[in-house]
Nucleic acid binder design. Structure first.
Lengths: 191, 191
DNA sequence: CTATCTGTACCGTTCGTTCGGTATATTGAT
DNA sequence: ATCAATATACCGAACGAACGGTACAGATAG
């Protein structure tokens, strides 16, 4: 089995328990691999395993979200309706990735542990920046001025992250769904 | 020294590192107390210390936030401007508590670790519910219908939590300030 | 035969926790 | 006022368990 086989299990674990909360025993159980095998595939140990999970999340962004936005941003002059469709597709993919709100966000979990934030800050920061910029670009291609477009990109991240936390806190996932449903219109407001 | 003396230090630590990230050694250093002494004040061990920190956060909500909203909700018929002033006061207190976005949220941190969520879910859930309901009540007293008022309460939590995560991820705190500045008007929209 | 992979057994360290005990202050009966 | 008795606050040292990580020999496959 190749290294990549086990990365989804790593993503699941670090998402669920955070960096400090994940133990090699848990990883061993989840992957079915002994510790020695884990160190064969990830010589850097726990830190490299977490980084692999993080890369998997950033990979999702790059290969499942950005294409939706970037393919559209290249051509100028979208109608408002076309923009809303694009953002709807983005939200659907986001909803799928977070399993309707049941999955929590690896980026958020690692950021809130200051200890792991130090190790992974670069990749986390890059993920958010990339996503925000992609949203801003498509809004600017539809005529929105840059500062507002950037704010809208930030608003998207804020809404998604906040809704994930609220949903987990209340064990109730309607609010996450509502946010994703309302987000496309909110982003396009004023176009 | 009494037990309450050390609770602020506990709040600071569990906020910063999460439940699994905090060690008794760190607590000992931060409080200046030996490990054994900690067990004199908190016989329940680490779990009781985290619960004390959680109670401190919930206490802040009850004694510093709810009075702003509840004193106002009792009398009927606020003008929109009066409502905005009240929510502005709420946001200022929130900004103070989170030190301009530099502090992260204990509730969010514990929720994202599934292990600790199991232990503390009741208190976290209650905190969010209480805050949401207080916002909804004051909006309803100004004539807003209940489902929308509840949604606005949820939106406030979502914005605050999301902005905290984004600010920590980007090491940039303007977005947190912007959210708090815009929140009062957003909550009152449509009144 | 070689290179990759894996299970067992183990390493040193740190975890949360407990034990036994000290120092100081407060009480209560004489 | 005196002096034992009690209560409170605190600490050094050590506990077993679990941690992340490693050494090494056997299995497996090309």
């Amino acid at each position: 089995m190749s290294k990549e086989t086990y990365v989804p299990a790593l993503l699941k674990l670090f998402r669920q328990f955070g960096y400090e909360g994940v133990t090699l025993t848990k990883i061993s159980q989840e992957t079915g691999l002994g510790k020695a095998s884990l160190y064969h595939h990830f010589p850097g140990g726990k830190a490299e395993m977490a980084e692999a999970a993080l890369n998997q999340a950033n990979q999702w962004l790059e290969s499942s979200v950005l294409p939706i936005l970037m393919g559209a941003a290249s051509q100028e002059g979208h109608s408002k309706a076309a923009l809303i469709n694009i953002f709807q597709a983005m939200c659907e993919e986001t909803n799928r990735f977070f399993d309707g709100g049941h999955n929590s966000c690896l980026w958020a979990g690692l950021v809130l542990e200051q200890s792991s934030d130090a190790l992974f800050h670069a990749q986390i920061s890059e993920a958010f920046s990339t996503w925000i910029e992609a949203i801003a670009k498509i809004l600017m291609s539809a005529g929105m001025d840059e500062p507002l477009a950037r704010q809208r990109g930030e608003d998207a991240m804020i809404s998604i992250q906040g809704a994930l936390i609220l949903s987990h806190s209340l064990h109730e996932f309607e609010s996450f769904q509502r946010v994703l449903n309302e987000l496309p219109k909110r982003l396009c407001e004023g176009i």
